[in-house]
Nucleic acid binder design. Structure first.
Lengths: 200, 200
DNA sequence: TCAAAAAACTAATAAGCGTTAGTTTTGCAG
DNA sequence: CTGCAAAACTAACGCTTATTAGTTTTTTGA
């Protein structure tokens, strides 16, 4: 059997990580076996352990790699001198783009974080709580400055973060719906809902 | 060991189904074992098989029970003589309420349907596709009658159906956010986004 | 009160899991 | 060409899994 790293691009570890994200997404982390993962790259299961430490390590890397990208973007966003509404639009569009660009990884991170081993689970949840709080704060400020209508910020964040996850189930083949159109339509829907809400 | 049906309400099968939904939700279907399920009602695992056929049967019942409720509501809605926008609002509110009332079951149905055994998986997907198509049709009509702004109906359905799933992660303890407030805010956000979108 | 039915139990099965140990093959550097 | 490290292999371990078989206990109904 030939080495796996000569076939695809990148080193073996990266190739395994990519295949793992694909398989974890399509079958679920717990239902996917190391033998299936190995078979997907035409080697035997024990050979994987020349490159990785454990199955759960793969999940940890996926989840925190995604989290890191979101956190980094949030930090950059906080430095920008733009209006609150522009920040929100920026966030929505960023989420949609990441969901398209890193489809498998984001899906796994969203669906399988519960399977993270301690203490990674606790850390993951803490980071997510922090991220959500930052979004709530952005919304709260925008409301105070009357950029958007008065709405419960926490609920708006819940709505936005859940809505963008719809990209997961986006059927590319539905005719005429390009990634760009998806992004524009969804952003418009979510943003206008904030602007024109009659807060009654 | 005493019978389980004398403790809780309903017959044994219903009690098991309820406990299963709870456990499948909190740990995931594949990660939850029959021993854990049995332990949660203080019996041994093999005793479960006096009441149920298999583990997967439990999942099938949960998923299709939820699907049936959504489908029935859709059929009733189609008979109503109300505006398109009222139909959409009705749907959004119904989804949010079901997500609260049948929290565990809807969560499991949304997260674990991939684990359904054939041919149930195929049937489930077919029903969901049908349901989505009906929603798309409602939106399409509303656009034609200029009740809502021109938007790609498929994307709007994606956005709405994903957004309402945010109720899954709703933290009841966040102060001052009652179920009613959650429903009103989210509905308003999603609905106004449809009405005031400048289709540019 | 007592038999029959329902539902619990214990013991065990076969299959599958992640992972380890030890060995052989592969491929690159000298 | 050759030697060495990297990475594949086979075999197997210890555990867990859903589920079955067979038996005992509990509840029910006449």
């Amino acid at each position: 059997m030939s080495k796996i790293s000569v076939n695809g691009k990148g080193n073996s570890k990266e190739i395994i990580a990519t295949k793992a994200a694909m398989l974890f997404r399509s079958r679920g982390y717990s239902s996917c076996t190391m033998r299936q993962l190995a078979e997907s790259m035409d080697i035997e299961a024990p050979s994987l352990y020349n490159h990785i430490g454990s199955k759960s390590e793969l999940l940890v890397n996926i989840c925190f790699s995604v989290a890191r990208e979101f956190n980094r973007h949030m930090e950059e966003l906080e430095l920008l001198r733009i209006s609150g509404i522009e920040k929100i639009e920026n966030l929505i569009r960023f989420h949609i783009r990441i969901m398209i660009r890193r489809h498998n990884e984001v899906y796994v991170s969203n669906h399988e974080w519960k399977q993270l081993p301690d203490p990674h689970l606790a850390l993951f949840l803490q980071q997510r709580r922090l991220y959500e709080n930052k979004m709530v704060q952005i919304l709260r400020t925008a409301i105070r400055k009357k950029e958007i209508s008065p709405i419960e910020p926490y609920i708006a964040v819940l709505t936005i973060l859940s809505a963008v996850r719809g990209v997961e189930t986006w059927q590319r083949h539905k005719k005429g719906i390009t990634p760009r159109k998806l992004e524009d339509n969804m952003t418009q829907h979510l943003l206008n809902g904030l602007i024109h809400s009659n807060g009654h």
